[in-house]
Design a protein around this nucleic acid. Structure first.
Lengths: 109, 109
DNA sequence: TAAATATGCAACCAAAGGGTTGCGTTGTCA
DNA sequence: TGACAACGCAACCCTTTGGTTGCATATTTA
C-alpha cells in the first residue's frame, strides 16, 4: 500500500515550507495573506509552497468568503514518524554500537 | 545553534537515498559495490547519493583496503525526531481537533 | 609484474525546483 | 455600482538535482 511518504518527505525538504508548518502549528487556520507576512518572498511563491504541502496532505484548506484558511494536518507527520523514523529509532543503539566498533578498529591497527 | 537539519531533510527527500539507509539499517557496513546491487542505476549515481548522505552525517565511511565501508549514523535522524517531529507530535491531538472543527462548520452552514 | 577489482573525478544533460512578474477572477464594502 | 482586497493561473528564468559516460587511481591477486 503506497502511502504519501514520498510527497511528505519532499514537502519537508524545504526550509520555507517547514517554517510555514511551524507557523500553522502555533497558529492554526491562517489565511494566505497572513502566512505571507514575515516571509521574504512574493505571495505566489508562498502559494506554491502551500500547494506542495497540500499535495502531501500536510495542510488542509477551507474557504471563508474570499479568504483561504490553512489548517495543519498532523496525520502524515505522524505516519512518517511511526512507520519510518520508528524503524531507525528501534535499531538506534545497535547502529551506534556498530559505528563505534568500526571506528575503534582503526586505533588498534 | 544551526544543526544539520536542512541537510538531513534534503537527504531524506529522495526515495533512493531512503532505500540506501534502509539497507544499511538492516545490514550495516556494506561496501559501495554491495550497495549498488539491486539498484537500477550506475555506481556513480549511488556514489552521489551516498555523498549527500555523508554530507548530512547520516552515513559514516571507513576504508578497508580498496573497499569503502558504509555505516549508518542514527544520531541525525534522532535529532530530527526529538527536536522537529516531536513538536508536532505534542500538539497533534489539538491540531486534529482544530481540523475537525473547521471542517464540521461547513455542514452547519 | 600484469590483470582484475573497487572506487574517485569531471564533464555533460534533461528535468525538477524555487522564485519572479503580469494579469484575471471572485468576494467585500462604502 | 465601483473600488479594493484576497486569491488563482500562466509564462518565464535561473539554479539545483539526479542521472549518465568516460577516464584515472589505488589495491588485490594470479
Amino acid at each position: 500500500m503506497a502511502t504519501n511518504e514520498d510527497n511528505v518527505f519532499k514537502a519537508l525538504a524545504d526550509g520555507s515550507r517547514r517554517a510555514l508548518l511551524d507557523r500553522l502549528r502555533v497558529c492554526n487556520g491562517l489565511t494566505l495573506n497572513e502566512l505571507c507576512e514575515g516571509h521574504e518572498m512574493t505571495r505566489q511563491a508562498v502559494t506554491k509552497h502551500l500547494a506542495v504541502l497540500e499535495a502531501a496532505d500536510l495542510v488542509v484548506t477551507k474557504w471563508r468568503g474570499r479568504e483561504k484558511l490553512h489548517y495543519l494536518n498532523p496525520v502524515p507527520i505522524n505516519e512518517i514518524y511511526t512507520r519510518w523514523i520508528g524503524k531507525f529509532e528501534r535499531g538506534r543503539l545497535q547502529a551506534l554500537d556498530n559505528l563505534k566498533e568500526a571506528l575503534e578498529e582503526d586505533r588498534h591497527e
